[in-house]
Amino acid sequence: MEFKDYYEVLGVSRTATADEIKKAYRRLAHKYHPDVSKERDAEERFKAVSEAYEVLHDAEKRRAYDQFGHDYRAGDEFRPPPGWQWQPHTGAHARSHRGPNPAEGFSQTDFSEFFSSLFGEGGFAGFGERAQQHARGRHSHARHGEDVTRPLEITLEEAFAGGNRALSVDNGSERRTLNVRIPAGIAPGQKIRLAGQGTPGSNGATAGDLYLEVAYRPHPLYQVDGRDLTLELPLAPWEAALGAKVEVPTLGGRVTLAVPAGAQSGQKLRLRGRGLPGKPAGDQFVRLKIVNPPADTPAARELFQKMADTLPFDPRAGLG
């Protein structure tokens, strides 16, 4: 069975607020509504968006989904973990949660196999002891654990390509090693949510969540401005004067840059889309810096003297 990344479907982060999730749903539901959309796959996209909203706008379903969601990517082979059970809510919780202005005729039967394996006919999924306690009505004495926020410094390479990081976390007397998935394009200040990895709850209640607030580690080559990067590129005087094709490093690999003839120090050239990923991706700017070779041999000094004698050039002519 294929894992569904509901956050990716709605185009929101794992730390998105309920309001951000609702806004994303409304925008996409309008875009792909079969009655108005001209796109060929509009109906399937609309179903996917509606299913994602069905889970993420419901706090209980979202918490259950998040208990394992951070370990998978969209499209990964998935099977519910051992001990996974589902229990439909009763009373007020039994109502079907449709999004704002739902499509007429869209029913639970339109949900994917992935959704049905976790939530059945729209019910709530829970793990072993938590589900049993709910059935016994002991929640009145349970207290949900507190959320915890910690800093996470990552490299630009990790921000560019994404990846996994093993992270040791102290939680009182317990020390755990967590596998953290870093999404490509994550920006400073954004948070990675690890559901159930915060402070433990009391009397069998669920633990709080752990939020990792991202910061970029300083890079020896690049300066960061949003999703844009700037790299200083040294040039020999003749490369700047005559023009040249030079290799330039980027986070995605080296590329060839055409330096125009007559280039000047401080001039910026753009490598479109070579910055950090996003919608749209950032650019990489290359700031030129002319570097003179050392005049540390008789031959080198002779060449510099010949240029001084033969070139009609006054670098301070613009000073008046």
Rank of each mutant, 00 (worst) to 15 (best):
M1E: 15
Y6R: 04
Y6C: 12
G11C: 01
D19I: 06
I21K: 08
Y25P: 10
Y25T: 08
R26T: 15
R26G: 13
R27T: 15
P34F: 06
A42T: 07
A42Y: 04
E44G: 13
K47A: 11
V49H: 08
H57M: 14
Y65W: 06
D66L: 05
R73N: 14
G75R: 00
E77G: 09
E77F: 10
P82W: 12
Q87V: 12
H89F: 08
A94W: 01
S96Q: 10
S96E: 14
R98N: 12
P100C: 04
D110Q: 12
F111T: 13
S112I: 04
S112H: 03
F114N: 01
S116K: 15
S116Y: 11
F127V: 13
F127G: 06
E129M: 11
Q132S: 13
H134V: 12
R138M: 09
H141T: 10
R143P: 01
E146N: 11
D147E: 10
T149N: 04
E153Y: 08
I154S: 02
T155G: 06
L156G: 00
L156F: 02
G163V: 13
R176I: 06
N179D: 12
A184K: 15
I186P: 01
I186F: 01
P188N: 13
R193C: 00
G198F: 00
N203V: 14
N203L: 14
L210D: 03
L212D: 02
V214A: 05
A215E: 11
P218Y: 02
L221Q: 08
Q223S: 10
V224A: 00
E232T: 12
A236L: 09
A236F: 04
E239W: 00
A241D: 10
G243M: 03
A244L: 06
A244I: 03
K245D: 08
G253I: 01
V255N: 02
L257Y: 01
A258E: 15
V259S: 00
P260V: 04
A263W: 02
Q264D: 13
G266S: 07
Q267K: 08
K268E: 15
L269C: 08
R270Q: 12
G278V: 03
G278S: 03
V286K: 00
K289I: 08
I290R: 00
N292Q: 07
P293M: 05
P293H: 07
T297P: 01
A300R: 11
L303M: 10
L303E: 06
